[in-house]
Structures are given as structure tokens and as C-alpha cells.
């Protein structure tokens, strides 16, 4: 007496394979929809943006007249911001990750910190803007400077970098630690010579993706009072500044139709920069990642 009814299985076979095909089609529709939306967005931006995109656009300051408006101050402002954000956030983020993964004891305090880092990654960016305004701009009297904006954005992307770096560190196999410790290496020597070389591709990839998020942020910088219209280049980190997304936001808010096209050109420049940064991240990940 068999406990498996072969006929029943035969009868249900058709239903099961049909279900599979149906869901496959459904999942395919999901990706088609996403790609379609992205495609429409890119085509629209490109067709509108190319009308103003020329060398003058990249080298002129903003203007009241759409045909003279340029992106120079915003591009330079964004780059200045990165000068602060990249070192501050990577240093703090990787340091935090190394401490949490390698040195911290597994106790309640560590778990509390760990949980809050994950929570921090989900805090809306405008809240970080408020923090930057009260702490950096007012309390520390940095004013509406590149320094204040850079530190605010560093805090914003810090949790992303910490989590990425932690994952990269965790992916180093245990036997590598054992081999190093068994040779009498100290913890730091092991981290520097074994863990970091293996983890750096992951850390850099995560950092670059985090930086590209920072470069597209608008809200926190509006909160701390980044300028929307400047006709000079910042000379040091204590100067006022504007960045690409703020300039774009400003242009789209203008009543003149022409300015919307200028904004599209700005978006193109921003997108181009983001694609470059993401490509570098992918390149680093493929080129330097080690296999065990």
C-alpha cells in the first residue's frame, strides 16, 4: 500500500506548472514597469537637458536670464562638499565598524549601539538637517558654511558606511584571523594586514555609494541654509555655498518655462556624475574583491 497517490500527483501537476508560469510572468511585469519608468525619466531629461548643455553652461554662474544661467557654482560647491564629506565619513565610519566588529565585547551596550546605527540609517534626511542647523551652524558657530554642510552630510551617510564596512569586515573568513593570531600578531596587526586588505573593496564600494547619496541630497542643506543663488566660488571651507541639487531645485521653482529646461541640463550633469561614481564602485568591487 503506497502512501503516495500517483494519480493525485499527476492531476495536480498541471496546476503547479501553471502557477509557476503565472508568477514568472508577474515578476517579469514588475521589472518591465521599473525599467519603463526609468527609461521615460532618462529620455525626458536628455531631450530637455541637451538644449542648454554646453560648455558655457558648465562654466557660467547662475543668472536671472535662463539663456545665461550656468552650473559652475553648484558643481564647484558639490565638489567642495565632498572634500569634507569623504574623509570625515569614511574615517568615522570605518573606525566605528572596526571597533564594533573587532574590539567591542558582545554585551548589551554594543547591541544597543548596533541597533541605533541601523535605526539612524532610516532617519529622514531633513532631521539631519535640523541637527546640523542647531549643532554645527548655531552651537558651534560654523555659520552656513561648507564645513557645516559637509559635517551634516557626513553624519547622514555615516550609518550607511558603518553597515557596509561591517559587512565587508565580517566577510573575512575566521581561519584568516586564526592564522594571523596563531603567529603572535596583535589585533591591530591582524586588522591592518589581513582584514582591511580583504575588506577594502567592500568598504570602498559602500563608501562611494554613500557619497553618491550625499551628492544628491537637498533637504538637509536647505535646512542649514545653503545658498540658492551665488555668483562667486567658495574660497575655503568657511564660505557659503550652493550644490547641484539645490540649484536644480531652485530652477524648477522658477515661473519661467525656460528655467525648467535649464534644470534638466543640471540633472544631466548630476546624473552623469552619479553614473561615474557608481561605475567606479562596480569597478573596484570586481577588480579587487578576493575569493577564498
Amino acid at each position: 500500500m503506497s502512501s503516495i497517490d500517483k494519480q493525485l500527483i499527476q492531476r495536480q501537476m498541471g496546476k503547479r506548472t501553471f502557477q509557476n508560469k503565472l508568477l514568472k510572468a508577474l515578476f517579469f511585469m514588475c521589472i518591465v514597469f521599473s525599467i519603463l519608468v526609468l527609461g521615460v525619466l532618462i529620455i525626458r531629461v536628455i531631450t530637455q537637458g541637451f538644449t542648454h548643455l554646453d560648455w558655457d553652461f558648465l562654466t557660467s554662474f547662475a543668472s536671472r536670464f535662463p539663456e545665461e544661467a550656468g552650473f559652475k557654482a553648484a558643481i564647484v560647491g558639490s565638489l567642495w562638499l565632498m572634500v569634507i564629506v569623504a574623509p570625515v565619513s569614511i574615517f568615522l565610519g570605518v573606525g566605528t565598524a572596526i571597533y564594533l566588529e573587532e574590539y567591542a565585547k558582545d554585551n548589551r551596550f554594543t547591541r544597543f549601539i548596533q541597533m541605533n546605527i541601523s535605526n539612524l540609517a532610516g532617519v529622514p534626511s531633513v532631521v539631519f538637517g535640523l541637527l546640523g542647523l542647531t549643532f554645527f551652524v548655531r552651537l558651534m558657530e560654523m555659520g552656513r558654511s561648507i564645513m557645516a554642510g559637509g559635517l551634516t552630510l557626513s553624519l547622514l551617510i555615516l550609518p550607511i558606511i558603518v553597515v557596509a564596512a561591517q559587512e565587508a569586515i565580517r566577510s573575512v573568513p575566521n581561519d584568516q584571523y586564526e592564522a594571523s593570531f596563531a603567529m603572535g600578531a596583535s589585533k591591530w596587526q591582524t586588522v591592518r594586514r589581513i582584514v582591511l586588505p580583504s575588506a577594502i573593496p567592500g568598504i570602498l564600494t559602500g563608501s562611494i555609494l554613500a557619497l553618491s547619496r550625499a551628492i544628491g541630497e537637498t533637504a538637509p542643506l536647505l535646512m542649514i541654509g545653503a545658498l540658492t543663488f551665488i555668483a562667486y566660488l567658495p574660497e575655503n571651507v568657511w564660505d557659503g555655498f550652493t550644490v547641484m541639487p539645490i540649484q536644480i531645485f531652485n530652477w524648477t521653482g522658477r515661473p519661467q518655462e525656460e528655467f525648467h529646461l535649464v534644470a534638466a541640463s543640471g540633472i544631466l550633469v548630476l546624473l552623469f556624475l552619479l553614473i561615474i561614481m557608481n561605475s567606479i564602485a562596480i569597478y573596484i568591487r570586481n577588480k579587487f574583491s578576493k575569493r577564498y
Binding site: 581561519d175 584568516q176 586564526e178 592564522a179 594571523s180 596563531a182 603567529m183 575569493r291
Partner: peptide, 12 residues
């Protein structure tokens, strides 16, 4: 005191 492990674990 050196140690050799069960699975070979050279560094990359």
C-alpha cells in the same frame, strides 16, 4: 608556539 590548522589557510 606555532600552529597549523585542519584546513590549509594561507593568506590571499
Amino acid at each position: 608556539v606555532g600552529m597549523v590548522f585542519q584546513k590549509p589557510n594561507p593568506f590571499p
